[in-house]
Nucleic acid binder design. Structure first.
Length: 474
DNA sequence: TGAAATGTTGGGGCG
DNA sequence: ACGCCCCAACATTTC
């Protein structure tokens, strides 16, 4: 009887799982194993809500495995030591895992592979990092040509999707820890873990007669509406595969009956390709995890004021759209992508605080926090990254609020102190005349903070700081 | 997947 | 009727 370990890391699913399929093709007995890695669980980038979501997902996966005659084996410790022990205990002769690209994951897998029979498979993205290159042979660093090259490759088809196995072999008696039930997933986190929930969401978003994806192109930027797919935590942990999502986007585009509907599906596909793009970037340029992709911006004289940073983290900057989004993040573990750009621009370009602090704070709170996408997003906003927003592109938090939350419903949802502030002042409450402040029960500086920084002044400060950094190199 | 500053145009008020 | 000014609307440039 041949035995293989299916080493689960961020592919918590039975459907369309290439690592699981490879393990099944290789051995008669497959041992699904998850290793609680202290280096990850106690990293400064770990987040309690994300860890809770992961544990809940492991629990769901264990249930699905048991329904098929198998079960999840859980160990804690250094992956090399734990896997070596697991091979010795079970007589397994191979370890199969879905490849990952974060610098930590690559170093870890290299270490495991040097000592143990590790085989990695595709699955993290549709088109694996390392297959798309510019004609010159260099990796793409600009999204649009990358997306063009990505789309020129053979698209995944429904027939490519691997069905979940109906039955699995029993797992021999080996030591296994219980799946941790702490930290618990707070009720304020609007995501139920698991493959079934991911499938339900994908179905609700992208299939049927008139799915929301058809309004994605126009609705996705609205902070006050649920116009996005809500799939990011599931993609993060592989509770849905990248292929499953891309197939759904392509099918929705094909089924569209009008140009706007098709545009909605294609815009969503582009967002999925952004995810693939940043996986490629992190694969080819792992140094972006710690430093600016553009060296000329490594020397920016950040202000890094501790009080400003605390105000940003706690949602009391005095700019409603920023504060609402930050409170949403801390309470729910999620933030709308438009809001992520707004608060990131505010941190880096209004407060002149190093984007890496924001990147880490996001990782500590986002349920969907992903090293590649999060780093890519932050460097994009800060203007330090690949295909980045130019340094002079600075979001005005008042205009962004008015544009993407026109009635103020989003900011009022998270800032109840603004409940009675009239629409026209809700994104700039400090401009409210004093009698109106009293009438609305919202005295600025008392019930809601004064802006901690003047945007026009901060903009000039940042332009100067970036200009100086550029000139220092030139 | 900006915003602000600056430039241009044209309608309308008004002497 | 005409020229002048104002300014909104739009376009272009700049950061």
């Amino acid at each position: 009887m041949s035995t293989a370990v299916w080493w689960i890391r961020r592919d918590l699913r039975l459907g369309d799982n290439q690592a699981l399929a490879a393990a099944l093709a290789r051995a008669e007995v497959v041992i699904p194993a998850f290793i609680l890695d202290p280096a990850l669980l106690h990293s400064p980038y770990a987040g309690a809500k994300r860890v809770a979501f992961l544990f809940s997902g492991l629990s769901q996966l264990d249930t699905e495995l048991r329904a098929r005659g198998s079960r999840l084996v859980v160990r804690r410790g250094d992956p090399v030591a734990e896997l070596r022990a697991l091979l010795a205990e079970t007589g397994a002769t191979a370890i199969v895992a879905e490849e990952d690209v974060s610098p930590y994951a690559r170093a870890r897998d290299l270490r495991v592979g040097r000592e143990l029979p590790l085989h990695t498979t595709e699955g993290l993205v549709v088109h694996r990092a390392g297959v798309i290159y510019r004609p010159s042979g260099a990796p793409y660093t600009v999204f649009t040509p990358f997306a063009r090259a990505w789309k020129a490759l053979v698209p995944p088809a429904p027939a490519d999707l691997l069905a979940p196995p109906r039955a699995l072999s029993p797992v021999p008696a080996v030591e296994s820890l219980p799946i941790p039930d702490s930290p618990a997933l707070p009720a304020s986190v609007p995501f139920l873990a698991g493959e079934a929930e991911a499938a339900r969401r994908l179905d609700a978003f992208a299939t049927g007669d008139d799915p929301p994806v058809y309004r994605y192109a126009t609705g996705r930027d609205r902070l006050d509406l649920a116009g996005t797919s809500g799939l990011s935590p599931y993609l993060r942990f592989g509770m849905i595969s990248a292929r499953q999502a891309v197939v759904a986007a392509i099918e929705a585009a094909g089924a569209a009956r009008s140009a706007p509907e098709r545009q909605g599906a294609e815009t969503w596909l582009d967002e999925l390709i952004w995810r693939e793009f940043y996986v490629h970037i992190l694969y080819h340029f792992p140094q972006v995890r710690g430093s600016s992709f553009r060296p000329e911006y490594e020397s920016i004289a950040w202000e890094n004021d501790a009080d400003d940073f605390a105000a940003w983290c706690e949602g009391r900057t005095g700019y409603p759209v920023v504060d609402a989004a930050m409170r949403q993040l801390v309470e729910t573990g999620w933030m709308h992508n438009r809001a992520r750009m707004i608060v990131a621009s505010f941190l880096a370009k209004d407060l002149l605080i190093d984007w890496r602090r924001g990147e880490r704070f996001f990782m500590q709170h986002l349920v969907d926090g992903d090293p590649a996408a999060n780093n890519g997003g932050w460097q994009w906003v800060a203007g330090t990254g690949t295909d980045a927003a130019p340094y002079f592109r600075i979001f005005n938090p008042v205009l962004q609020g008015k544009r993407h939350d026109p009635d103020g419903a989003f900011v009022r949802r998270w800032l109840p102190e603004l409940a009675s502030v009239p629409d026209r002042y809700v994104h700039a409450p400090w401009t409210m005349p004093e009698d109106l402040q009293r009438q609305a029960g919202c005295i600025i500086g008392q019930d809601y903070p004064d802006p901690i920084v003047d945007h026009a002044w901060a903009r000039e400060r940042t332009l100067a700081a970036y200009r100086q950094a550029r000139e220092a190199v030139a």
